[in-house]
Write a protein that binds this DNA or RNA. Structure first.
Lengths: 236, 236
DNA sequence: CATAAATTTAAGGTTACCGTAAGGTTCGCT
DNA sequence: AGCGAACCTTACGGTAACCTTAAATTTATG
């Protein structure tokens, strides 16, 4: 999943030489799941059955143009689309209407250029999506899952509200360290946090009721009188 | 978590297709907290309630233009703003006013371009880790951690109070040098510290009870009779 | 538009920290 | 040694900072 080289790539062009040429370059680069189509009909069929991770579309096709094809694809998929266009061909339209394209390149082009842009898209779309996650961590007696915004402990699973989530995130980013009340307010209410000090306390209390055995004798979310609060997490 | 992908993004455009399109691309990139608005009114409401970390504003809106909207937002927030503008539209004004927009792009545009610029802004603005950097250092026999306001030694961990914390910070900033009682009082009580000399002594005593083996024969926090106090730290 | 959930406001209670004071000790000078 | 000044040490009461609960208000949801 992490490796972009095993992503499925669909190449759509009505000229067999062009298809072959692009396929060749991609294989040389290490891509191996390559599918070919010569027209819109085939393209849609393949997109439905194979579900490639990216498609390279020629703008001119025997049974329709790339823009209409793109709209059709967009009906059921958000997959990235890369356009091939001939010089002087309706580039305004490509940009204006076809705002759903991720990138395009003008024929003739350098293979290197195509590869670079293609892998750039794949990297952006498929590596970051997987990596981006909110922290899931443990404190004394329970697990705090900010990804799904729940607290799991032996007495079951409890959901976190938006503010609780934001507070815990800020506290976790500074785990083990003191976070001033000001910093916490800022994290939740933004720049103008004057007057929210009491709200903060109530939210802290709510969090404690969810993560602490005894909310009045906290072991994980500690008060540091005069300075702020501190979240103690387990090892890691 | 310094992850840019979990920043909240607001998209403002009156054309639903454009909104959907941008949203689609952002989601593909891994952004997931995306909010939409079609006019100024909605925008202000969302900015107040959701507090997004960045907004993408179309310059032309049904109930006002982007510039006025920007000024309204600037009344209460310094969040970065990204403008979408149609070709030939008021670009002089956009540039001339200088008005606090972080960047803009001319429609039609490639999503790639938008994504790149947007992430550039987010990185620039939000990776500046405001992680407060307080000293953690060692003295004879224990570690003083001002980040979490605790003293660790072989007899366990002891918390520091607010005043103790402030005093130790001032002393550490002048480690190895004499700090006058006046300077210490100033650091803790601010401008008018007259009458707190005895309090200072008591606090010094309490610190010594936490960091010294024998508080009455201090080795780290030394008295310099007639001048003040001096904190001796281990090399570093 | 009604209902539930989340958030804020408000008010009374609790406690840990801080300042004061009072008596003791050490230092430095004559 | 004797004396005063500077500093130490201990304990206690007041109070600001924080807790806790419930009710009021806002926001989300069907």
């Amino acid at each position: 999943m992490e490796n972009i080289k095993n992503k499925k790539i669909l190449i759509v062009d009505d000229e067999p030489e062009i298809r072959k040429m692009i396929e060749g370059f991609l294989r040389k680069e290490g891509f191996f799941r390559i599918y070919l189509a010569a027209n819109c009909e085939e393209t849609l069929k393949i997109c439905h059955s194979i579900k490639p991770q990216i498609a390279i579309l020629d703008v001119m096709l025997p049974d329709g143009d790339g823009f209409t094809l793109l709209s059709s694809i967009r009906q059921f998929s958000q997959m990235p689309i890369f356009f091939l266009t001939a010089k002087g061909e309706d580039q305004d339209r490509l940009l204006g209407l076809g705002l759903g394209a991720d990138d395009y390149i003008v024929k003739p082009f350098l293979p290197r250029e195509l590869i670079l842009r293609l892998t750039a898209i794949l990297k952006r779309v498929y590596t970051t999506t997987v990596t981006q996650q909110l922290p899931v961590f443990m404190v004394e007696g329970c697990t705090i899952d900010l990804e799904s915004a729940v607290v799991r402990s032996n007495r079951g699973e409890q959901p976190l509200t938006a503010k609780e989530h934001a507070l815990l995130l800020k506290l976790y980013e500074n785990r083990g360290r003191i976070v001033t009340s000001d910093a916490l307010c800022e994290a939740v209410w933004g720049g103008d946090y004057y007057g929210y000090e009491n709200s903060l306390m109530v939210h802290i209390r709510r969090i404690r009721e969810k993560i602490e055995m005894n909310p009045s004798k906290p072991k994980s979310l500690l008060t540091v009188r005069g300075l702020g609060y501190k979240l103690m997490v387990k090892k890691e």
